[in-house]
Amino acid sequence: MIPDRGVEKRALRAELRQRRRTRTTTERDADRAALTGTLQRFVEERQVESIALYLSAPDEPDVRPFLDWAHERGIRVLLPITREDGLLDWAVGDGASEREGLFGMPEVVGEVLSPLALGDVDAILAPAAAVGRDGVRMGWGRGYYDKTLGSMANRPPVYAVIFDAEYLEEVPREPHDEPVDGIITPSRIITFRS
Rank of each mutant, 00 (worst) to 15 (best):
residue 130 A to C: 09
residue 16 L to S: 10
residue 125 L to F: 04
residue 90 W to A: 03
residue 72 E to H: 13
residue 40 Q to H: 02
residue 162 I to M: 12
residue 9 K to L: 08
residue 68 D to L: 03
residue 72 E to L: 07
residue 66 F to I: 05
residue 127 P to D: 06
residue 102 L to H: 10
residue 165 A to H: 11
residue 5 R to N: 10
residue 25 T to P: 13
residue 18 Q to A: 14
residue 1 M to F: 09
residue 18 Q to K: 13
residue 61 P to C: 04
residue 144 Y to E: 10
residue 69 W to D: 01
residue 192 F to V: 04
residue 10 R to A: 12
residue 192 F to W: 09
residue 175 P to Y: 10
residue 25 T to K: 13
residue 180 V to H: 14
residue 61 P to S: 06
residue 16 L to C: 11
residue 99 R to G: 11
residue 147 K to L: 09
residue 26 T to L: 12
residue 166 E to T: 12
residue 99 R to S: 12
residue 182 G to C: 07
residue 7 V to R: 15
residue 44 E to F: 05
residue 133 R to H: 11
residue 1 M to R: 13
residue 80 P to R: 06
residue 77 V to Y: 00
residue 15 E to W: 03
residue 5 R to Y: 04
residue 59 D to T: 08
residue 169 E to T: 08
residue 78 L to N: 05
residue 156 P to N: 14
residue 96 A to S: 14
residue 174 E to D: 13
residue 49 E to F: 01
residue 129 A to S: 15
residue 187 S to N: 08
residue 89 D to R: 11
residue 114 S to K: 10
residue 183 I to A: 13
residue 83 R to T: 08
residue 10 R to T: 07
residue 27 E to I: 05
residue 78 L to R: 10
residue 99 R to Q: 11
residue 105 M to A: 14
residue 171 V to D: 09
residue 122 D to V: 00
residue 186 P to S: 08
residue 9 K to S: 12
residue 166 E to M: 15
residue 158 V to C: 15
residue 24 T to V: 11
residue 80 P to S: 13
residue 145 Y to V: 02
residue 9 K to W: 04
residue 131 V to N: 04
residue 188 R to Q: 09
residue 5 R to Q: 11
residue 38 T to Y: 02
residue 43 V to W: 11
residue 116 L to F: 04
residue 183 I to D: 14
residue 120 D to Q: 14
residue 2 I to V: 10
residue 96 A to M: 08
residue 84 E to R: 13
residue 49 E to A: 03
residue 89 D to Y: 03
residue 110 G to F: 04
residue 2 I to Y: 07
residue 8 E to Q: 15
residue 183 I to C: 14
residue 142 R to C: 05
residue 191 T to I: 08
residue 16 L to P: 08
residue 79 L to E: 05
residue 112 V to E: 14
residue 34 A to W: 02
residue 34 A to G: 14
residue 85 D to Q: 10
residue 16 L to R: 10
residue 143 G to H: 07
residue 40 Q to W: 01
residue 178 E to Y: 02
residue 89 D to V: 03
residue 47 Q to S: 14
residue 78 L to S: 06
residue 187 S to V: 00
residue 99 R to E: 09
residue 140 W to V: 02
residue 133 R to M: 10
residue 52 A to G: 01
residue 177 D to W: 03
residue 103 F to Q: 07
residue 122 D to Q: 08
residue 91 A to P: 02
residue 190 I to A: 15
residue 184 I to Y: 04
residue 69 W to E: 01
residue 147 K to N: 15
residue 131 V to K: 00
residue 145 Y to P: 01
residue 74 G to L: 09
residue 19 R to T: 07
